[in-house]
């Protein structure tokens, strides 16, 4: 771990996103990196494949840490649309708010958002775990296939619309449930998963027992004329 002692910095006032990404994607990159002056630029730290520790020191634009594999990325500010989209593994931690489509289609790893997430958080998620300390916007968990979405605050309209096998946990209020989403009984397995996720996300002030669990009613799994209006 001694390699991480050296502080590696990329300042976007003097460098470019292209240099940043090609440096972090290169096979030689190791250890910890800090990105200065991100100022809402897009595609920061995307396509990483090594277990780097990357700190984005400020606001990130679209697709920060997109398609992440193995890296641990911390955004010390807000993140734009599609943060950690299609993440495979590793972790992304947004200390501020995240815009729409946070964690879209992500297949693995952990996305933690300390603030609120916008519309369609976890859209089409495919295995990722997402923990939002604040609230999520409308259509969150839309078509969510698998993985876990934990919301410590409230959820907007149409939570979990058309979802498949993803688990949704909400502590606050749910404005409305989307088509084919229903409240489920919290099983011991659910509770264990939730506890682990809260712990991993460093959330100690909300007990797992204070959440409700939502999931697919599985009425849309095979076409049935009586459900036609839900399509």
């Amino acid at each position: 771990m001694s390699a991480t002692l050296e502080k590696q910095v990329i300042d976007l006032h003097t460098s470019t996103v292209r240099v940043l990404n090609s440096t972090l994607q290169s096979e030689d990159a190791t250890g910890a990196w800090t990105i200065l002056h991100p100022e809402g630029r897009h595609s920061l730290a995307v396509g990483l494949t090594a277990p780097l520790d990357v700190t984005i020191d400020g606001q990130a634009g679209y697709y920060a840490a997109g398609m992440n594999q193995r890296a641990n990325v911390v955004i010390k500010g807000n993140a734009g649309p599609g943060v950690a989209e299609n993440m495979m593994s590793g972790s992304v931690h947004v200390e501020g708010n995240a815009s729409m489509a946070a964690g879209a289609t992500a297949q693995g790893g952990l996305l933690v958002i300390d603030g609120d997430a916008g519309a369609r958080c976890g859209i089409s998620m495919k295995g990722v775990s997402i923990v939002v300390r604040g609230s999520v916007g409308h259509m969150s968990g839309f078509m969510a296939q698998s993985g876990n979405l934990v919301v410590c605050g409230d959820a907007g309209e149409a939570l979990g619309d058309s979802l498949y096998e993803a688990r949704l946990f909400v502590r606050g209020t749910v404005k409305s449930l989307g088509a084919d989403c229903e409240e489920k009984k919290m099983t011991d397995e659910d509770l264990a998963i939730l506890k682990d996720l809260l712990k991993e996300a460093g959330i100690t002030d909300y007990p797992a027992e204070s959440f409700r669990r939502y999931g697919s009613a599985r009425r849309l799994y095979n076409f049935n004329v009586d459900n036609a209006s839900a399509y």
């Binding site: 090609s22 897009h42 595609s43 634009g61 997109g66």
Partner: peptide
């Protein structure tokens, strides 16, 4: 922006 992300990921 999406195209740029795909380019960034694939060098």
């Amino acid at each position: 922006i999406k195209i740029e992300e795909l380019r960034e990921i694939t060098n």
